[in-house]
Amino acid sequence: MPVSGYVSSVIPVLLMVWFGSILERWLKSWMPAALKMFLVPLATMTVSIVLGYLIIGPVATLITNLLSAAFSFIFQLPVVGSVLGSALVGGLWMCLVIFGFHWSLIPISIMNLNTLGHDSVLAATIGHGFALGAVIFAMYLRNKDERFRGIALPAMISAFFFGVTEPGIYGIALPNKRAFVVACLSSAVGGAIVGMTGALMYISGGLGVFNLLNFIDGTPGGAGISHMIFAIIASLISAVLAFVIEFITYRPNDEEEGAH
């Protein structure tokens, strides 16, 4: 079990629920009807939670550690490591967030900030909120359904300005699938730009537009705002690319008919 517990983790919960569903069906298949109402839920919850802490959770933690090691290895590759690693982190960040595996990269970033005074790992994620916000904004403009627009606008503001992407991911982009892919690919482009320019984060602070302030080097004779300018360029390119692709390819009426 990780020291921080399982806060913001998703995989252990999903595996526990999946295991519990199998256990529940098995218990119902042989348990007398008079006992099912009480003993089936009790036994299902007890066994699932115990195994969740003893087996399922540690397995998920192992996967997280392996991801952390894999990304560290990629970033250390000569010549292409920075660009390739930054593109992968930028492109996969929202996927990692969905499953709670983004916590595999946060310790690396914190260690870099404490030991080196800067970080390139989470710097690569600068474009993801802007890409997602731009995708949702394009969908907002193309879709005239008032219910959809009422959900899309606050999700876009949340992602673009404050870096809180969960409402946009779960409520808008992920159900659309293609829109989610567009956002991820555009974020990968932003990450690659961060890797090519060598932009670095110097503090761990706000998200969204406030994340740009993390790229200011306040040390005397340091980089100053140059890395923030690179981060702004990467964010704008991610946003513009995501908006253009989504605005051209999004067909709300066709997708609604396909869903029905």
Rank of each mutant, 00 (worst) to 15 (best):
L141M: 14
F161P: 00
L185R: 04
G258C: 09
A199C: 10
V7L: 13
Y250H: 12
I248G: 09
F75L: 09
V40S: 00
A69F: 06
L153Y: 13
I232W: 04
I22D: 11
R142P: 04
L207T: 10
I110L: 14
C95K: 03
A188R: 02
S29K: 09
W18V: 00
D254E: 14
M156W: 11
S9C: 02
W93Y: 15
T44F: 11
M45A: 15
A69T: 06
A239Q: 00
F99G: 12
D217C: 06
S204V: 01
E166W: 11
E24D: 04
A199P: 10
L122G: 03
V50K: 09
N253D: 14
T249W: 13
W18I: 00
K36H: 04
M196K: 09
F99N: 06
L66T: 01
E257V: 14
V10P: 00
N176R: 03
L132K: 04
M201W: 05
H102R: 10
Y202C: 04
S186C: 08
L92H: 05
L88G: 01
N112D: 15
V181C: 05
S204L: 08
D145P: 05
S82P: 02
K28L: 15
A173T: 12
V189S: 05
L23I: 02
E246S: 15
W103R: 13
I225Q: 02
M156L: 13
G190E: 11
N143P: 03
S29P: 04
F38E: 06
T249I: 15
V50F: 14
F161R: 00
M1G: 13
L35R: 01
C95E: 04
D119Y: 00
A259G: 01
T219M: 02
V181R: 04
Y202L: 02
V3M: 07
R147V: 14
A87G: 12
S204Q: 12
G20F: 02
G221Q: 05
G205R: 02
A234I: 10
I108W: 06
L212C: 10
A239H: 00
G258Y: 08
F247I: 13
L39F: 08
H102E: 14
G191W: 11
H260A: 12
V47E: 07
S29R: 13
